[in-house]
Simulated assay, not measured.
Amino acid sequence: MKEIKAIIRPAKLLEVTEELQSIAGLPGVTVSEIRGFGKSRAKGAKDKVMYEMVEFIPRIQLEVVVDDAMVDAVVNVIQKYAHTGNTGDGKIFVSTIDDIIKIRTNERGRDAL
């Protein structure tokens, strides 16, 4: 199992999530509003936010855990629909998940997805 974590522009959220929902068997997606900065340190960004004299840019973080067989499909959708070609499009991280426990049913592993 893999966790896919993507940081994308807020304006791309609807497009990305609509396409993710079309992937059969996708267990679900967690969406969080976040702020941060990259190599350019938010210089010149139109949508930057000041917090204690540090400039941050608002972004969306998507998280999803899937079977290994679904990784390419999920990554491809995020890459295609989050892309603008401009600096600050975001990043996609893929990590290995050792175990999952569903709290309600106590199921483990793939059954917990």
Rank of each mutant, 00 (worst) to 15 (best):
A24I: 01
G44Q: 15
L62R: 08
D47C: 14
F56M: 02
A11T: 06
E3G: 13
L20C: 03
N106E: 12
D67L: 06
K12I: 06
V75F: 02
Q61H: 01
S40Q: 10
Y51W: 10
E33N: 14
G25M: 02
L14T: 13
A45S: 10
A69D: 13
E107D: 10
M70G: 04
I100V: 11
Q79L: 09
R9P: 13
E18S: 00
K80C: 03
K46F: 06
G109T: 04
I101R: 01
D98M: 11
M50G: 09
D111P: 06
D47M: 13
G36E: 04
V49K: 14
K12S: 06
V29Q: 07
F56H: 07
K2A: 00
D89R: 00
S40F: 15
I60H: 14
I60D: 14
A45F: 15
A73T: 14
G109I: 04
E55M: 13
K43L: 00
R9Y: 14
V77H: 03
L13T: 11
K48L: 13
R104T: 00
Q21V: 06
S22A: 01
I101G: 02
E3H: 15
K43V: 05
V64P: 12
N86M: 12
M53W: 11
P27V: 01
I8M: 08
A24E: 09
Y81G: 12
A69W: 08
E33F: 14
V29D: 03
N106K: 09
Q21D: 04
V54D: 07
P58Q: 00
G38Q: 12
P58N: 01
G90S: 09
D67V: 00
P58R: 01
M53A: 11
E3V: 15
E33L: 08
F37V: 08
E19N: 11
E33T: 11
G44E: 15
N106V: 13
G88T: 11
T30Q: 12
L62F: 00
R41G: 10
M1W: 12
K46C: 08
A112C: 12
D67N: 08
R35A: 07
G28Y: 05
A11K: 10
V74Y: 12
T105K: 05
T17S: 06
E3L: 15
Q61A: 05
V29L: 00
A42Y: 15
E63M: 11
L26A: 07
E63D: 11
T30G: 11
S95V: 02
R108W: 02
